[in-house]
Amino acid sequence: MLRAARQQEQAVAAKPSWSIVVFSIGGMKLAARTEDVGGVTPWGDRIPVPSRTPFVGSLVKRDKEVLPVYDLASQLDREAQGESMLCLVARHVDGPMAICIDADIPSLHTVDAAQIRPSRRQDIETVGSFTSDGEEIDIVALQRLGKTRHESLRQ
């Protein structure tokens, strides 16, 4: 736990500024490092898969590619909003994953590293958080979604 926190702080301190994608799920603003995002496309139909892996229970098809879906909305106890929801492709350590996000187009931001601090969130893996317009926005560790801290440290 301490090691993870130290790693997070080291990551925060290593860069002068961070390139960030801000998106929302169920109205909750979240962020991700741009290098962890493989793209944003219209959301397709989910193909459910019988599964016991938490938050991984469906697939989406993109042309000839099949992506597993990480149900971040369920993990946050929310539902993606809007008529034309979007698919955010996460560059996960096990391969690309699709995340259903709100219809609001994600925006790009550059955040000074000094503004980024360790997140207090415990329910999802994060690499830090920052404040924008008075709102604290957590930076989701897309690469490690669904991994415990222990598993993340082993990799």
């Binding site: 898969v49 019988p50 892996t53």
Partner: peptide
């Protein structure tokens, strides 16, 4: 099945095929 599926479902679903562009 993508490696993100990590539990017992790996013994339920052997894989995927495309059938006329459907999975």
């Amino acid at each position: 099945l993508p490696p993100h599926f990590q539990r017992v479902e790996r013994t339920w679903v052997a894989g995927m095929i495309f059938y006329r562009d459907e999975l």
